[in-house]
């Protein structure tokens, strides 16, 4: 039995962005059907600029691979590209009490972002997301985050988790310095924009047991 195992045409994939991606790391060929369902769902709910680029991602490379998400952000220039100047923020205690944008986030968009693989959260985390079984277990389940943490704490956690724990594997989502060998397409940019951080904070705050 020699031949393609992924169910979609390889030719339909756009070229990997920065050289080669993690997209090549793993295929979920053992469960392609479930994934189809998943991708359709994703495609139906693009929540933000990033979600929009997530659409082709979810429709194509997902079928074969889930890790493409980690790289495909190259193709999502819209939100972050111009955000080289980070909004300044003030840490008070173990949190950032004020919204980075000055406005409250949108929890529904936040939920979509947490589920979008380009955002990377559910590569490591799981949560109350019954629509996808492709969740990570490298990190605590997000269920009940809103009970355990205040919005202020959640905001700092997302902005710079290393402040809580210098050895954490959780990336700092709103930082653009102190990194080593950052890929050309990501250099000088935070992983998420201030708006996206606020949307995710708003969503996490709703996660109550």
């Amino acid at each position: 039995m020699i031949g393609p195992s992924c169910r979609h045409e390889r030719g339909a994939l756009p070229p990997p962005p920065a050289g080669e991606g993690w997209g090549e790391g793993v295929s979920t060929r053992e469960t392609p059907r479930v994934e189809r369902v998943l991708t359709r769902r994703f495609a139906a709910s693009p929540a933000s600029g990033r979600g929009k680029t997530g659409t082709w991602l979810d429709l194509t490379s997902h079928t074969c691979s889930i890790f493409a998400a980690l790289v495909t952000i190259t193709l999502a220039p819209a939100t972050v590209a111009s955000a080289e100047e980070l909004t300044s923020y003030k840490i008070v205690g173990d949190g950032i009490p004020a919204s980075l944008t000055g406005a409250p986030g949108d929890a529904a968009r936040g939920r979509a972002l947490v589920l979008a693989r380009t955002t990377t959260c559910i590569l490591c985390h799981s949560g109350p997301f019954t629509e996808t079984r492709f969740q990570g277990d490298l990190a605590p389940d997000l269920t009940g985050s809103g009970n355990r943490w205040s919005a202020s704490q959640l905001r700092l956690r997302l902005v710079d988790a290393a402040r809580f724990n210098p050895d954490t594997i959780m990336p700092s989502y709103y930082r653009n310095d102190h990194f080593v060998r950052v890929g050309r397409n990501f250099a000088g940019k935070p992983i998420l924009s201030a708006v996206e951080i606020e949307d995710i904070v708003a969503f996490l705050a709703t996660l109550r047991d």
Binding site: I66, I122, L123, F134, G136, I169, G183
Partner: peptide, 24 residues
């Protein structure tokens, strides 16, 4: 550690093998 996600090989392949990255 390297890259925008600031992860080292060891973070996954020494410290977290047998766990799952998005289910894999």
């Amino acid at each position: 550690r390297e890259g925008q996600l600031n992860l080292a090989c060891t973070n996954c392949h020494d410290d977290n093998y047998s766990k799952h990255l998005a289910g894999a």
